[in-house]
Computed example of a mutant assay.
Amino acid sequence: MSSPLPIALFAMNPVHLPELFPPRLMTRLQELVRIDPALVVRDFSDPAAAATLARAEVLVTGWGCPPVDARVLAAAPRLRTVLHAAGSVRHLVGEAFWDRGLTLSSAVEANALPVAEYTLAAILLAGKDAFGLRERFRSERVHPGPTDYATVGNLGRRVGIVGASRVGRRVLELLRPFDLSVSLYDPYVDAAEAAVLGAAPLPLDELLRTSDIVSVHAPDTPETHHMLSRERLALLPDGGVLINTSRGALIDHTALTEELVSGRISAVLDVTDPEPLPADSPLHRLPNVFLTPHIAGSLGNELARLGGTVVAELERMAAGLPLAHPVHRTTLANSA
């Protein structure tokens, strides 16, 4: 006789559930755990969730999930694991979670894929000066002359990657087929590992000074707050392009705004500080700023990739295998 399926509970903003778990994935999920798609918790103190939480062995979490703190853990004595159908888990669990010896998985790797794809597109378009030439074409309604293309092109373009995070590593992988000169700054990556990743290791200041295009992929931690300071932004060469798909707080936005208003550099910004920007921010209007509303991460049909990661983890658990994408207490401080 087969053992009963473990009981699981959704905890997230329910608006995301249909895209994270479309019918095919929801069917497979319910073959692996007993879970009610109509019960999606946004507040663990909700009496409607108390009985299920008390019996749950698995929490399937996502954007909008409240912290799994000591109070929640006390109400969930049978809980064994949390499977997060999103990226960052830094604010999801605390010391009480780790002290109880629970396991945690994140779909951060799956979420890194569309961010890296957005970044690759931004790098290649920036190398062709597509953003600047589009603005000029829209304004003047005539094609630029041949001399206007003297500095355009991706052959040998110098690209600097700040941070060998999961996104940063995926970007480096995607850049390999192109004729680019790629450098990397990451204090946790040595020269041998950088070579494997296909990049030349450089100190941050040297990377900024010698790159035509800089793309930021470091985690948002106290150590990285405003890592691109006024002094470091000044190191970017005239005509350089800064791409940020990580977090706005990594850059001193007052200094960045001044640089962009001056026209000395350009930027592709999917994240800002604050987010969203005030309506009167000049970044909304500058021709040398390509601003998008935090769309690089998983959206629309890409969310199913995150739900698929949760389903795959449950399949591994059912087979007695360890989690494929575990989050460990020791590495969480340096994670996004």
Rank of each mutant, 00 (worst) to 15 (best):
D220T: 01
H143T: 12
G160P: 09
A200K: 13
L208H: 05
I213G: 01
G156F: 14
A218K: 01
P187I: 11
R157Y: 10
L155Q: 14
G156I: 13
V152Q: 10
L174S: 13
Y185R: 09
T151N: 14
D205R: 02
A194K: 06
R176A: 15
E173H: 15
V159Y: 04
V214F: 02
L175E: 08
E193Q: 14
G145E: 14
F178R: 11
L174T: 12
G153P: 13
M227C: 00
V182T: 08
L202R: 13
R158V: 09
H217Y: 01
G160D: 09
Y149H: 12
V171S: 10
I213Q: 01
T221K: 00
R141D: 02
L202Y: 04
I161H: 05
A195T: 14
G156Q: 13
G163T: 06
D220F: 04
R158N: 10
S215P: 00
L197K: 02
D186N: 06
T210P: 04
L172W: 08
E206D: 14
A164F: 04
R209C: 04
T151R: 15
T210E: 11
P144W: 00
V216M: 02
G168A: 07
A195R: 15
I213C: 01
R157I: 10
S215F: 00
T221G: 01
H226D: 05
A200W: 07
G145H: 13
A194Q: 06
P222W: 02
E206Q: 13
P222H: 01
S211C: 04
G163F: 07
P177C: 11
S229T: 13
V142S: 07
P219C: 00
A200H: 12
V189R: 02
L174N: 12
L204T: 07
E193D: 12
A150P: 05
H143C: 12
P177D: 11
S181H: 15
L197G: 02
H143V: 13
L228C: 03
P203C: 05
I161V: 15
L184E: 05
V214K: 01
D186K: 03
P187C: 11
V171N: 10
P219W: 00
T210R: 10
S229C: 08
